[in-house]
Simulated scan of single mutants.
Amino acid sequence: MSKSENDAFVRQRQQIIISAAKICFSRSGFHGASMADISRESGLGAGQIYRYFESKEFIVSETIKSIATSWRVFLQDNLPKQSSTRDIIDAESPFWQDWPYQDRCLLLEMYSEASRNQSVREVLAQEEQLLIADLEKAFSRQYAQVSPQQRNERIQFLLMLVDGVACRAFGDKNLDHHEQGRINGILTHHLFG
């Protein structure tokens, strides 16, 4: 096997393990899921897993990086397309269709872990910086007439909004759509007025 084939095989195995870990972590949390759970879910023996990851902590770390990157890419792709906050607030709207419930659970677990783990906070901060830079570029093209401060305020507001909605366990089915429209009008006027 050539070096490039071997590298591809290693990456494939690592991805299998991370995918299995995501399932286990979404069910039991980063600290509740065991290596035996990950082994069972991946179909790989514990010895095989340790060939690709030196410890469970390393699997947690790589899983967090994967979740954070996926979250950034999801937001990069979807936030610039939103002209209204209504779809963001409604957890059942088309805005959220490409962000599965399992990933929402993992995101909540990741934010919880960040509250006690400096390295997780650093991963999240790095991904957020990349996201803000990308959103600034997209919004500069989309809202060229708006000041950089107003664009930054919109970005910060949207990030707080999506984080809040993503972290809710259940959506509020009794949302007042008239009130949502009124709030959206105020925000649009304030941020782009």
Score class of each variant (00 low, 15 high):
Y52F: 14
Y52K: 14
F53K: 12
E54H: 07
F58M: 15
I59P: 00
I59Q: 01
I59M: 07
V60Y: 02
V60Q: 04
E62C: 01
T63Y: 00
I64P: 00
K65F: 03
I67T: 09
W71N: 04
W71S: 03
R72I: 08
R72W: 04
V73M: 03
F74R: 13
L75H: 01
N78Y: 03
N78W: 02
N78G: 12
K81W: 02
K81T: 07
K81H: 08
Q82P: 02
Q82G: 10
S83A: 14
S83M: 12
T85V: 15
R86I: 11
D87I: 09
D87N: 11
D87L: 13
I88G: 12
D90V: 12
S93W: 10
F95A: 08
W96C: 09
Q97I: 10
Y101N: 08
Q102Y: 07
D103L: 09
R104I: 06
R104W: 00
C105L: 08
C105V: 01
L106H: 03
L107F: 10
L107V: 09
L107S: 02
L108M: 12
E109G: 03
E109C: 08
M110H: 03
E113V: 07
A114F: 02
R116M: 03
R116T: 12
N117I: 11
S119R: 13
R121C: 12
V123I: 09
L124V: 06
A125M: 07
Q126C: 05
Q126V: 06
E128K: 14
Q129L: 07
L130K: 12
L131F: 02
I132H: 01
A133P: 01
E136H: 09
A138E: 04
F139W: 06
S140V: 06
R141N: 13
R141M: 14
R141K: 14
Y143F: 11
Y143G: 04
A144K: 11
Q145W: 11
Q145M: 13
V146Y: 01
V146R: 07
V146W: 00
P148L: 13
Q149P: 02
Q149H: 06
Q150I: 04
Q150E: 04
R151S: 00
N152M: 15
N152W: 13
E153Q: 08
R154L: 12
I155V: 06
Q156S: 09
F157T: 07
F157K: 09
F157W: 08
L158E: 08
L159H: 01
L161M: 10
V162H: 00
D163T: 14
G164Q: 10
V165H: 00
A166V: 07
C167W: 10
